[in-house]
Simulated scan of single mutants.
Amino acid sequence: MNFPAQMPAAQGPDRVGQGTAVEQSRAVAEVQAAIYVARQFPREISRSRNAMQSACGSLALANKAFYRFPRAGGAVEGSSIHLAKMLAQTWGNIQYGVTEMRRDDEYRQSEMQAWAWDVEANTRHVLTFIVPHAKFAGGKVKALEDLRDIYENNANNGARRLREAIFATIPDWFIEEAEELCRETLNKGDGKPLTDRIDGAIQVFAGLGVTAERLEQKLGRKRDQWTGADIAQLLITHKSIQRREIAVDDEFPQARITAAEIKSNADRAKKQAPPDDDPWAGQNVAQPGTKRAS
């Protein structure tokens, strides 16, 4: 019996350059040093928690701590990459990053990797994924040609995976407490009276072409019935619109005229019309100095 010839092993470079060797040694030393320092200075849960609570009490962070975007006729809402990075910093001894490992212009896609590493526990969460150089717009897929558009598309997809990687390395109770504190901060606002915050929200959305009536339709209440939680929800939506995660018309659809409103308008127009027994109805009224047409 004839066996196929064994395939030769893939040949690597016959030598390693000095620059490559130095970089390899530096990377190994950096990993070893990071693990050593993390174990010499382990995180203190109480200190991490205090730092997190202080950060979540800031309105600047709370304003960008959540995202919102449409999906399947509804909306998806969650914690943003900004909150994830803050939690990684306050939890401590965590390294993270996102890398474009390869770009294939022929197949119009990028191979990317997002990762988060708890150096102290020596646990690492890695996500490797493919990002097509395209976007879905106007009901169809549109290829991206501009290098800046490709970069922004890769960055947006990388940020979402990086958020997942960071959250996978941090305890759930730490994340949930941070989310609750950020929502409380949004609810309280910056200390201004609620009426002033309502007026401010209306003015901000007016700049986007959204009227107060459309805001009332979205919240299901008149403006004098809005609460701090309603203003917080509007702030999250406004930030998502600014980041182009959601469109204005998707979040605030134009009001539709119902059949009852059409009938009401028709009845109102009929009442305003001249009565049928008016002898001058539909006739030309003679002007001074002229004769009425026969």
Rank of each mutant, 00 (worst) to 15 (best):
N2F: 13
Q6S: 14
P13I: 05
V22E: 15
V28D: 07
Q32V: 12
A60R: 12
R71H: 09
E77L: 12
S79Q: 13
A84K: 02
G92W: 05
Q95G: 03
G97K: 02
D105N: 11
M112F: 01
D118C: 02
A121N: 14
P132L: 05
H133T: 04
A137T: 10
G138N: 06
G138S: 03
G139E: 08
K140P: 00
A143F: 10
A143K: 14
L144K: 01
D149W: 01
E152P: 00
N154K: 03
A155K: 14
R163F: 00
T169P: 00
D172C: 04
I175T: 11
I175V: 15
T185C: 08
I198K: 11
D199C: 02
A201S: 15
F205A: 08
L208E: 10
G209K: 06
E216K: 06
D224F: 13
L234I: 08
L235M: 11
I236P: 00
H238F: 11
K239L: 02
D250K: 13
D250P: 00
D250L: 12
T258P: 05
A259I: 06
A269E: 13
K270V: 10
K270P: 00
D276C: 00
N284T: 12
N284K: 12
N284R: 12
P288T: 07
K291P: 01
S294K: 14
